[in-house]
């Protein structure tokens, strides 16, 4: 096979993998928007906070150590021992559930029936608060995150694909990042679990009912507040998964909250209310931006993938304003 074709396939595949990483972030937005109509500006910060908490548990870091030391003049930093990744993930999940409860109790409860823009503003405030709180709790240094996921290029895939090139051509084999492969598998499991949960459990059905119509759901005895706690908890779990995947790449640092920016074009394209939309949207954005960077970038100076993703999303918006899979909004006048 011609190496140029193999290069195209390589870029395409890596685009798909990158798209999965964007979808992981977009999923959290979709879950909350679907159940409550809130565009959660704090989703990126939630991923950061979850990753910080996970590393804190894994390394045995004492929360608020700087504050404690400053007030009491002590020198405490760690408990002396960390904990296995799995246990730390479970404990982090408990923290994210507690966070969901607190958000419902102290933010959302007081804003029921408010305009969506008010709820959106509240999540902006939440984002700033959570970022500062995470800093105070775990410090702002860059933390290494290793939960045991494989990473780096796959030798096996390189060897296999090297054979595909025409004899005599200088081809090094295709590159595929094992961390991206892990993310893909995790995303498939996550989406399957979320789908099964929403289809086959009573709570899942209640979630869908709330998503369809808040007032109708409440009229049949579904507690909106309980549903919000559940949905924010699930979204916290998705944020944790996204935080793990992105944090494993770059270390856990405060710029992790900026991954939300990668999810926006995915949401515009896939629709704010569709889980499959988040996945398909991510894949399209991932492939689109990688191909554009490789084939259009050199013609216009490069570094185009960030804005190109928005161009793709806006192009779709012209055809389908509600996104690829979003619900069509019909309002009676």
């Amino acid at each position: 096979m011609n190496p140029a074709i193999l290069n195209f396939i390589e870029i395409f595949m890596n685009g798909l993998m990158a798209g999965i990483m964007y979808s992981l972030v977009a999923l959290g937005f979709v879950l909350i928007f679907k159940a409550s109509g809130i565009f959660n500006f704090a989703q990126g910060v939630m991923a950061l906070f979850a990753a910080l908490t996970l590393v804190g548990f894994m390394t045995g870091q004492v929360p608020f150590a700087h504050l404690i030391n400053a007030i009491f003049g002590t020198e405490v930093h760690t408990w002396g021992a960390g904990m296995p990744a799995l246990l730390a993930i479970l404990l982090t999940m408990v923290v994210m559930i507690a966070l969901a409860w607190l958000i419902e109790r102290y933010v959302l409860k007081h804003l029921v029936n408010q305009e969506p823009i008010i709820l959106f503003m509240a999540t902006i405030g939440l984002a700033y608060f959570l970022e500062g709180f995470g800093d105070l709790m775990w410090g702002s240094d860059v933390k290494t995150l290793d939960v045991g996921l494989p990473s780096g290029g796959s030798f096996w895939w390189e060897d296999v694909t090297r054979e595909w090139a025409a004899a005599g051509s200088q081809y090094y084999g295709m590159y595929i990042d094992l961390l991206d492969v892990s993310a893909t598998i995790i995303a498939i499991v996550l989406v399957t679990a979320l789908t099964l949960f929403s289809q086959y459990t009573a709570t899942g059905r209640a979630l869908r009912a709330v998503a369809d119509d808040h007032q109708a759901a409440m009229s049949v005895g579904i507690s909106l507040r309980r549903i919000w706690v559940i949905v924010w908890s699930i979204s916290g779990f998705v944020a944790l998964v996204a935080g793990i995947m992105w944090g494993s790449k770059s270390g856990v640092q405060f710029s992790l909250s900026l991954i939300a920016l990668k999810a926006l074009p995915v949401l515009i394209l896939g629709g704010f209310t569709s889980i499959p939309g988040a996945i398909i949207g991510g894949l399209i954005i991932g492939v689109g931006e990688k191909l554009a960077e490789a084939y259009v970038g050199p013609l216009v100076g490069g570094a185009i993938e960030n804005w190109f993703a928005y161009v793709v999303a806006l192009a779709f918006l012209l055809v389908r304003p509600q996104g690829l899979f979003g619900d069509k909004i019909i309002e009676r006048i």
Binding site: E10, I11, N14, M17, A18, M21, Y175, D177, W246, K249, S250, S255, L256, L258, I259, K262, E289, K290, E293, A294, G297, E305
Partner: peptide, 8 residues
């Protein structure tokens, strides 16, 4: 945060 294209 995303440099896959550049490193490919």
């Amino acid at each position: 945060q995303e440099q896959k294209s550049q490193w490919l």
